[in-house]
Structures are given as structure tokens and as C-alpha cells.
Computed example of a mutant assay.
Amino acid sequence: MAANVTRIWLCADDYGISPGVNRAIRDLIERGRLNATSAMVVGPAIGRDEVSALKAAAANSPRFAIGLHATLTAPFRPLTMHFRPIDGGMFLPFAKLLRTGLTARLDPELVRTELLVQLASFGDLFGRAPDFVDGHQHAQLFPGVRDAFVAAVKQAAPKAWVRQCGRNQPFLDRLRTPKALFLDLLSTQFRRRAARAELAFNPSFAGAYDFSGAPDFGSLMQRFLQGVSDGGVIMCHPGLVDDVLISLDPLTVQREREYAFLGGEQFASMLAANKVTLG
């Protein structure tokens, strides 16, 4: 491969959240438009048939990675009986989990145990350890979670790489996107812990944006491609909206916009123009 070509991971999050999201992800895999996906073992659409279909879709892709999308936020439920704190039998909502972690009110042992069970469930479904481990709503980066996350991966999947969400951009450029800047800050501590545990992690990250206001995903993807380095991760959320998705997640129509763009010819041309490959 030419030295000036950048090879990246384009990862579709949330496999297992709904049948429509699963179908969209498998379609893009079969068309060579993705080379990674992370699966939610607590999702309602992650039975053995959906896992078999994912494996079949990826069978002809020699460089395809399947990871665990570790989940610790509502509206999903823990796999462990004694996980705390919970809210109505579910994990805490994103903002509440973050606040609880920032105020040192999370029990790291309970978090580690839950993540070990999710890792074991992935192994049972897929017949192997995950290639990588990331986190739904970036919960792996949170104070009170990150140490337990690193410990669980080190114990159960030491050869997996873990997702950090720091960008490879000048500081002034980072200031323009508050959500991504917040992930940059959290990722600094996460990378230190992963390095101490001798876990590999992606060198750069892109894909975070404000889902409100119907942003143009093509323009966003152009920016993402320019900001990710070789071996970096671009996160995406393609999907087809169905009743299951609507009941679980506010990110609906934008998933279909991402799916349409990633499956279109503009995206293929954009990869070539930016000298980026998924191969």
C-alpha cells in the first residue's frame, strides 16, 4: 500500500439495538463501506440469528473488526443482579451516570463485574473475545468507570484494543466543537490508564457531532476524514428506523441520513479524494 494512504477504522456503533440498525450495518459491511462494528450484548436485537447474520456479512472482509459496545446507561438494563446505582431497574441516564462518577459515587467493583459479564456474553454469542471494546455514549471514559473498564478488558480480553475519543487536531480547532472537546478532556486520563495496563488504543478519533438540527453528514464526514490519522477510528451510527429503535433511542432520522450517505457514491469518491482506505 502506498505510504501516503491513510488506513482507518470506520466503526458503526450499536449493532444489536434494533433490527433496522442491524440490517443497515450488515448492508454497508457487504458493500465494503464499513470495516468495524461494535455490538451491544444488552440490546434487544442481539440473539444468535443476528450474530450469525453479522458474521456472514463480514465473512468476505479480511480486515473487519467486531467489538463489544459496553453499555452502562439507560434505557438498558444490567446483566448483573446487584449492579448499583440503577433507576427503575435500568442503568442511570447518561448525564446522571456522569455526575455520579464525577462525585465518586460509583462502586468500581460493581462496574467491573458488570463489564466482565458483558464481555463473557460477547464471548458466548460470538465464540471468541472482541477485537476491540468501546462504550455506548462514551461511558468508558467517565470517572468512576474508566478504571473498572480498563481492568475488565485487561482481565477478559487483553489482546483487544480500547477506544479513546481524543482528536488529532490543533487545540484552537478543537474549541469549535464543545462535545468533541469534552471527549478530548476525558480521553486524556483514559489513555494514561490504558497505557499503564498495556492495552492498545486507537491513535485518533472522529465522528462526534451535535445530532440536533439535521446536520449535513457529508460535510461532517469530510471534516472527520481530514482529522483522523492512520489507524484512527471514525465512529458512525447508520441505521433504518423501526419501532424498537424509536422506543430506545432519540437518534433516529439522522441514522438514516448516515446510512444513505455511507452507501452512496459521494462517500466512495470522498475516501479516494482524501487518500483514505478501509482496506
Rank of each mutant, 00 (worst) to 15 (best):
M1N: 07
A3I: 15
N4S: 15
T6E: 03
R7Q: 03
L10S: 11
D13E: 14
Y15W: 04
Y15C: 02
Y15L: 05
Y15V: 02
P19F: 05
V21W: 11
R23M: 07
A24G: 15
I25W: 05
R26V: 06
D27F: 07
L28R: 14
R33I: 09
L34K: 06
N35I: 05
A36P: 01
A36R: 03
T37I: 07
G43L: 04
P44G: 04
E50K: 07
V51L: 13
S52Y: 10
K55N: 05
K55G: 04
A59D: 07
A65F: 08
H69S: 00
T71W: 04
T71L: 06
L72S: 03
A74Y: 03
F76C: 03
F83S: 00
R84S: 14
D87Y: 03
D87E: 15
L92T: 04
L92D: 07
R99H: 05
T100S: 01
T103N: 05
L106C: 04
L110N: 10
V111R: 01
V111T: 02
R112T: 07
T113Q: 13
L115I: 09
L115A: 06
L119R: 10
A120E: 15
G123D: 12
R128P: 01
F132I: 04
V133Y: 02
H136I: 00
Q137T: 09
F142S: 01
P143D: 02
G144V: 03
V145T: 00
V145Q: 01
V145K: 01
A148K: 08
A151C: 12
A152P: 08
A152H: 11
A156H: 12
A157C: 10
K159Q: 14
K159I: 06
V162P: 07
G166P: 04
N168W: 08
P170K: 07
D173E: 12
R176M: 07
R176F: 06
R176W: 08
T177F: 10
P178E: 06
P178N: 06
L183D: 09
L183N: 09
L185I: 14
A194K: 09
A194G: 09
A195K: 09
L199Q: 02
A200Q: 13
F201N: 01
F201W: 10
N202K: 09
P203Y: 00
F205G: 01
A206E: 15
A206T: 06
A208M: 15
D210H: 09
D210R: 11
S212K: 15
S212H: 15
S212L: 13
G213F: 06
A214L: 12
P215H: 02
P215Y: 02
G218E: 15
S219G: 12
F224W: 03
V228I: 13
I234G: 01
I234V: 08
P238F: 08
L240C: 12
L240F: 11
V241I: 05
D242L: 11
D243F: 06
I246C: 14
I246S: 15
I246R: 15
L248R: 13
P250M: 09
P250W: 11
V253S: 14
V253I: 08
Q254D: 08
F261K: 12
G263F: 02
G263M: 07
E265S: 10
M270Y: 04
L271Y: 04
A272Q: 14
T277N: 05
T277L: 09
L278C: 08
